[in-house]
Every structure is written in C-alpha cells, then in structure tokens.
Design a protein around this nucleic acid. Structure first.
Lengths: 141, 141
DNA sequence: CCGTATCCGAGCAGATACTG
DNA sequence: CAGTATCTGCTCGGATACGG
C-alpha cells in the first residue's frame, strides 16, 4: 500500500501512497489517525491487551481518566469493532471488556509507534531544548 | 521495548511495556501520540517525505490546510527536530522545508499505521454499520 | 513570498450529581 | 457496579486582515 519513491530522495524508503492520493480513502485513514490521537484510546487498548477487564478495573488501571471519558472511549472502540463489550445480567452488574482480534492487530501496529517514541524521546527533547534556546536568544526579555 | 504477555491470553503477541508502566516516559510517549493525532502533522510529514518543498508549494500540495495551521504544524515539527526549515535571504523570500533523518524514521513508522488503516477500513466500517444498526433497533423512532 | 495577529465557533474533556 | 446527564472551561482549528 506504499509506493516506492521515484525521485532522487534517498533519506527514506517509503512514501505512503495513501496520503498522496486525496480520494475517499484518505479521509477515512485520517479517522484512524484521529482515533489514535484521542487522549485515552491507545491507553485503553493497551490495558485491554494486557488482559480483559471490568469497567472499574479499567478505571483503576488508568489513573486520571474520568468516568465520562472512559465510557466515551470504550463506546468508540466498541463501535469500531476494536473492543467487545459483554454484559452479564447479574446483580451487582458485571460488564467485561476485551480486545477483539481486530483490536489486537491495531495494538501490534501502534506498539511500533510507541517503540519509536521511546527510542527517540531523547532526540526530540534535545531538539526542543535547542529550538527553545534559539527562540530565547532571538526574543530576549 | 515490548514484553511478552505472561498470562493465558493468546489473542495477541505484544504488550507495550511503555504504557503498562506509568512513569515519566509514559507521558512523553503520549506527546508523540498527540502529535500524530494532530490534523495536519502526518500529512505534512508525508508530503515532505515525497520531496522537500517551499512553503507555498506545500500549501498547494495540501488542499484544505489554512495558512495558520500549516505554519503552526511546521513550527511544531521543526521544534521536535522532525523537519528542517531553511531560510534563503533573497527577495522575494524563499523558505525550504525538508524532513530530517529523524522525521524520516517517524514517517516509516507511521506508514505502518496508515497501511493498517487501509487494510482494515472495511472491517471498521462494517463494525460501525452493525453497531449503529443495533442502536436504532434499541432506540427506535 | 512568507508569514503573524486577531477573532470566533465547534468539539474535546473534566467535575459533579444522579440512576438502574 | 456501571453507567447517564448536565454544566463548563479550554484547546483546536478556520477565516480574515495585516506586516516584513
């Protein structure tokens, strides 16, 4: 799904044909990017990747998430077929969440991005420090 | 950077240790996710991956982007060391943008995510249709 | 040509209170 | 336990106008 670069640029191997073509597919791809960019989506997927959880287990496992956002995130992921929600008709209520196979493949893919982040955090932080330093010199006081 | 799952879950192979540990690294990883989630960041990186561009070339290459957002996106990417900005002191002004090697590695990684999106768009759309169908049945008229 | 400054609306996201 | 409802601030992002 990616085309080989046809010009003389040798810094990279891949050009995502996806983003080069501005057809209907492009905007759908952006939806995936948007979801990955959502604040809690990847964290929830990662937690469910560790093991299936109940609602409040998940909540405790993810410090800082509000009830509202956890529910919204879960619903979105369920709608996209990434997470399965199972309600057990007992009292007190019990609802289990687990990754679907599709959700598992997404986690595998996102993990590569996470690994990139960990590997290059120092580079990024260094670049930021340098950039910010230049800005202060350019606009002092 | 990813640890093998230690429980009986066989649906997936990987658990990102990154998100399992809630240390300082975790929140920095989120910054990368946030950037990828930004509306124009990946598109800009992809365009610059095709070849270096001048500001207005880039603008024409990315329909729908406003001057404000293009500049903001470019500045953010430059600050993170993903894009290099070169000003040529001529009249009229000329400013070139290109991917740094670091930016190139990010594009390679993001491309995998894009490929996932293309490959599974039908699955996701199908899941959505089914989910929305169930909702309508549950809450008719 | 390459931006910056300002204004504004829409949607994301938190806190809180309430329900089956 | 597992949510829903409501209110509200905040940031993202578009349009427009102006500056170097």
């Amino acid at each position: 799904m990616a085309a080989r670069s046809s010009d003389g640029d040798t810094r990279r191997e891949w050009v995502p044909a996806v983003l080069a073509a501005r057809d209907d597919t492009t905007c759908r791809v952006r939806e995936v990017l948007d979801r990955v960019g959502e604040k809690w989506a990847v964290t929830v997927i990662a937690e469910l990747g560790r093991k299936p959880r109940r609602y409040n287990e998940l909540r405790r496992a993810i410090p800082g998430v509000s009830q509202r956002m956890l529910t919204a995130t879960l619903r979105g992921l369920e709608r996209d077929g990434l997470v399965r929600r199972t309600v057990h008709p007992v009292v007190p209520p019990r609802v289990d969440y687990e990754l679907t196979p599709l959700g598992g493949t997404l986690l595998n893919t996102v993990s590569a991005l996470l690994d990139w982040a960990v590997e290059h955090i120092d580079d990024v932080d260094g670049a930021r420090a340098e950039y910010d330093g230049r800005q202060e010199v350019a606009a002092p006081g």
